[in-house]
Write a protein that binds this DNA or RNA. Structure first.
Lengths: 201, 201, 201, 201
DNA sequence: TATGAATGAGATTTCATTCAT
DNA sequence: CATGAATGAAATCTCATTCAT
């Protein structure tokens, strides 16, 4: 009934290669989750968008949530890569922080609808919750390692976790347009974001 | 379409007072939303839990979302009341902040599942989103007014909005047990929360 | 929303041929529409009567009206076939008219309840209305073509439309038993019907 | 949910006079049936439109169908009155027929939606059917009496019934816009209608 | 008579998932 | 692997009608 925004690939492109199929499904799912949200699509539509029949979906994923997790994984990787690229620049720490903030914000904005679903499922689905918590655990560890490597003092776990939470909350609020709606200047939010990237005293 | 000619007589035990019925429905909905979540219930079940027939629900609310908003409203009021009670105590500012943090955290914890649904719908439903943003607008205004009244400097809107976001994010993370799962001491989080209540320098 | 993990296995006895399923659904719907009327059934019952689960209905028809239109189409075809058979006989024009009248009346009588629903929906549903008007347009064209082919004078569109309306009104009145109720001899009505089939002077 | 087109009277106008209430209800129902159709309204809305509470409806009518029949009755009376007025003119028989046809057509057009519901219920509801058939019986008798009074030959019951059916079918087709849709000139239809009013040879 | 809150059976529709081919 | 028809539980919402006041 709902018109699909994501078109099915020409059937000639369909594969018998399982990895390729899986990849195609994840890609289609990512696009759909980010345009109509998790609840806005169904597994049949994902399969069709990837150029397969409904049943094929279940040859690759046990259920709908499972492909969401797979999309989340690729999303995390993409974010890390974006951050890595931003960190390559040889600029002052201050500029670096600003760039990093802008990069991450941009990434959140680009995946606004997907992240919206992520938050909804995090609030709802224990498995998604666990996956995201595990991811946060890894981020905290990475943060600690990075600081240690640079000889900086490593804050407590609570402080680092808070940093993550805050960063995401601010990014999502900006990406979702909450700041606009509340008549808050985006530049001010970006400044707060950059500030939050500072190594704690 | 096919009206059956035989109707059971309306049970005499139900209220004939619409305000009372509405209240009973909201109460039942709040309890259900906070135990099985928004998607875990349906309007029929809410009506039954309040002691009414399914149709009665629709005599009071046009749809399920609408009763959710009503529950949200009562929740906000309850939170404000809890905070007001916490602020009555005649203690040092530091203790006050700690108490306030504990009070709000407690409130979030008590309504953990409901808040989970609130976040999910915020991420999903434009009307819920709007209601919550409006509420945040009011909170920012109240915060500014309170600071002004106490002769304290009033931070920018961005900073105040960030405070709200941060406070909620931290509270929810603790209430949801994320900190436990990440092996973070709750006391540390409470300290951060209390710190976040500090008037900005 | 809450998908149960345990699904019954689809019964192996159902067709896997969509055309066959569609046909079976239309057939079941025709029988139900003609026994309990359009409003007397629902899509679930149609599906069950055809040997399918409720959801299957929606795999073949977007809604109930849509299957009604499909039934109407088969009904029109059946009527045309019945008329064609009646016209094959090599008899006098007068006898032919009588036979044709009897044939059509019979067809209306056989589908009395269905036609009743058709009229109700025609009076109610714009899409059904449009379908039937289109059909009438086709009938007028066919009538004109037939007369022209036989070298008979072709009456105006108004006259031909009136013929159709009159023929249907009389047939339905007889089929519905109105004549009996009003103590009118069926033979007299049949004579009027046959007369109405005459080429206009 | 649906906006009511027919506004409730100011409560000051509510009566304790049962006849007045009944009349008000019938009037409101007529207006609603003729604007949104029988299935487009519900008894609650009729009561509200007449300025009463839902329950009052059932103090005056046993069910929804029953008020429809009451409206039908007033409709029949109105038609008879309109015809009587048309017949008062002192003109040639030919002009009279044309005027009568125009009058009745006009009446059908004015009550288009109501008549649409009437036909739907006639096709569906045995009680409405019976009421209309009884009315037709009366019309046939009146027709016979009128012809006899004027010393004209009285056709058979079948012929007279057919006249009625035909007249109504043509009127409704024009009133419903079927002729327009089929590109048939209304003047031609009016001529056929007037012709149908002719005393049979 | 009038009120109006309450009733509850029922109809429509969705979609994650299965499984025979 | 891929197919795709079929499944069926479940959720939302309607409205004619009742009856205590």
């Amino acid at each position: 009934m709902k018109p699909s925004k994501v078109r099915r690939k020409p059937s000639a492109e369909r594969t018998r290669n399982p990895d390729e199929s899986r990849r195609a499904l994840i890609e289609a799912a990512a696009a759909l989750f980010n345009s109509v949200g998790y609840n806005g699509t169904d597994s049949n539509r994902i399969a069709r968008a990837a150029g397969y029949a409904p049943g094929t979906f279940y040859a690759h994923f046990p259920d709908k949530r499972s492909i969401f997790l797979a999309v989340y994984e690729t999303w995390v990787v993409a974010e890390i890569e974006a951050m890595a690229r931003a960190l390559e620049a040889d600029v002052s720490p201050r500029t670096l922080r600003a760039r990093l903030a802008a990069t991450i914000l941009d990434h959140h904005r680009k995946w606004r609808v997907f992240r919206s679903s992520l938050r909804a499922l995090y609030a709802t689905d224990p498995v998604v919750r666990e996956a995201r918590l595990a991811q946060r655990g890894r981020q905290i560890a990475a943060m600690a390692a990075a600081l240690e490597a640079r000889g900086r003092p490593v804050p407590g776990r609570a402080a680092m976790f808070a940093r993550l939470l805050i960063f995401e909350a601010l990014c999502d609020a900006v990406a979702d347009g909450d700041t606009k709606r509340l008549k808050i200047a985006e530049a001010d939010m970006l400044a707060l974001l950059a500030d939050n990237l500072r190594t704690p005293a």
